[in-house]
Design a binder for these strands. Sequence first.
DNA 1: TGTGGACCTTGACGCGCATCAACAACCCGG
DNA 2: CCGGGTTGTTGATGCGCGTCAAGGTCCACA
Lengths: 260, 260
Amino acid sequence: MKTQRAKPSESAVAVTGTATASSMTSYGPTALPVSGGVMEEIFATHGVAMRARRRQRLVMGAKRSDVIYLLKSGLLVLSANGSGDRRQLLTILYPGDVFSMALVPPLDGIGLVAMTDCELSRMRPSALDDSPKELREFDALLGERTAELHARSILHIARLASLSSESRVAAFILELALRTGQVVNDTVTCDLPLSRSDIADYLSLNADTLSRIMTRLKSRGAVATVGRSRAIVKSVKRLSKEVPICAATLALHGRAEGAG
Amino acid sequence: MKTQRAKPSESAVAVTGTATASSMTSYGPTALPVSGGVMEEIFATHGVAMRARRRQRLVMGAKRSDVIYLLKSGLLVLSANGSGDRRQLLTILYPGDVFSMALVPPLDGIGLVAMTDCELSRMRPSALDDSPKELREFDALLGERTAELHARSILHIARLASLSSESRVAAFILELALRTGQVVNDTVTCDLPLSRSDIADYLSLNADTLSRIMTRLKSRGAVATVGRSRAIVKSVKRLSKEVPICAATLALHGRAEGAG
DNA sequence: TGTGGACCTTGACGCGCATCAACAACCCGG
DNA sequence: CCGGGTTGTTGATGCGCGTCAAGGTCCACA
């Protein structure tokens, strides 16, 4: 096991909520970062608020337990140990996403890692046993959000399988920008909470190669960077035209789903 | 658009069920190919039976409609048009899987294609509006199966991202064997309903490369073939040891989930 | 404001896989 | 039993990306 680069220092502190929950202010449904309120309200009522710091790994209770998490703000990543000492990032979770261990295969070292400081809420569905109406709503909404997660995973498969490395990187930045960025006309600016190696692990690339590709994209004028952790997509339209799959990215991650 | 090989002749016949449903015998829950009955019973009661022939493409109603399909027997594949003229296979559906367009991103040419003759059942959840108890069960079960599909997609991402081509092929054959094959001691025999190019499109490989890899696997004694469309895994244990991720494959696709 | 360590960039080089091309095996209907 | 179309196999070749190595840059913290 020889790693030429130092491993990212990912604090493995358990964040089981009980410890930090008391330090959280509770959220009224109007203060929620995402629209669609019903699910968030259920979590606010029956769940336990918790918080995770950047680089912290969430210990998601016991295996296969029925605890469900709602991400209220921040960015989470599903991580696992690939072959050798390579880590891989399998999914990115955005605010509003609902997640549980049932959604995940039993891979070695699998779990959620916070890419930014996060606020989330933890709940077990059995908490709804005494209010059947809420339980019904919850099941239906959970199904919808799980379906959306699935669609995103499929899209990621499509990207990995059919896109050139350069297009993959472009598509990734576009997705992140659409999700978390500020839109001004056709330009989007966003933070890059993932380091270069994180991005590489997510896109199934080498960190060195990723760096080269970023340089290429910048010199071509497709994207620009401010410091290390901020990216600017110069023209969403142009990028969408260049990258074949971007239409789907726009549909899944664009501003069409807020419905508000 | 120059394809050196002839395109696979995939008949684009619409199988919307109404046409073929009358020719189907209805299935009692005891005759079902998979265990777990409740979901299958709901489909048997409220759904429409339908059938697809090998290579047929299922036209899944209108976009985003709420029709849900249950695969009763056979093998389905989620297919889309990748960049260029390359087709890509994104997921494999096995008997017992429940599927709808909500699970899928809006990719070009996306849809289900039958790899073998299939029996399925089609239903819209609104059919359950008048029996709330069934609707509750349905939502809960649907959530479970969707979660399993998601876990499988994540596993596929992990395979694509972290496995060498050879391991990918081995893992694929193992999965198929575990799902559809006959087990004798440590040996499993199964049909290969996917052609070489199908497998290549699923594993993000070139058909030529796949052929070479198969030759290598055979000469190494890991697998054997009978004719073109039948494979034998010599030793599941050995293969599992060789291929890093196979533990998860065994857990998700092995004989642990029947619970009967 | 300086210093150490993490993070990023860039070059040289080799390997693995895609591509192209030709051929062999198989399948099906006659 | 034969012929044509489909599918699978194999060789030669080139390119993209991973790997290794050597700086350069940024940031946290004192």
